[in-house]
């Protein structure tokens, strides 16, 4: 086994629109940085400042590649008793959250997320260590997922 295979339920990949949602802010940051370095290069007239711009561009491209791969690895699965969240490619993790341990569910969507029609669903348990947020869930699916999780949580609710 190379990594956690989930036999209980199929992995549901997150929406590819999450790539856009993450690329846009990163693009803005790196665009501004490149612009700044170009301005510096033009103002000083030192050609080797252009090397800095190229380096920033290269890092930006790598970040874009990481984003694409991360989104590809991000998925969730609704098992019989637990919700599973898988994320990360280089630093990868699988989180198993029993429905009965859920304290509350958050659905969040920023302006860009709303424009793209996606949302982040986050589960909270009594533990601060639980990192169970699912980014890039299609908006209407997010609402359904939240309701399903809440229903299951109530059915299996255990104390702390």
């Amino acid at each position: 086994m190379s990594w956690y295979e989930n036999a209980a339920a199929p992995w549901v990949p997150v929406s590819r629109r999450l790539i856009t949602a993450r690329l846009v802010p990163a693009g803005i940051v790196f665009g501004l940085l490149v612009l700044a370095s170009l301005v510096v290069a033009l103002a000083t007239g030192e050609p080797w400042f252009l090397l800095g711009s190229i380096a920033i561009l290269a890092i930006g491209a790598w970040v874009a590649w990481v984003i694409v791969r991360q989104v590809g690895a991000h998925a969730w699965a609704e098992g019989e008793d637990d919700l599973l969240v898988r994320k990360g490619r280089m630093f990868r993790s699988v989180t198993v959250v029993p429905y009965g341990r859920m304290q509350f569910v958050d659905v969040k969507a920023g302006p860009l997320d709303r424009a793209l029609g996606i949302a982040t669903v986050q589960l909270h348990t009594a533990s601060p260590g639980t990192d169970a947020s699912i980014a890039g869930v299609p908006a209407e699916e997010a609402a359904r997922l939240r309701d399903r999780l809440t229903t299951r949580g109530e059915a299996r609710l255990a104390g702390l």
């Binding site: 956690y4 993790s93 989180t95 348990t125 990192d131």
Partner: peptide, 16 residues
């Protein structure tokens, strides 16, 4: 066991 809130499996590049 009954106090387990959730479980995680993690791995970075070195461990992989």
């Amino acid at each position: 066991h009954e106090r387990t809130q959730s479980l995680g499996l993690t791995q970075g590049p070195v461990r992989r």
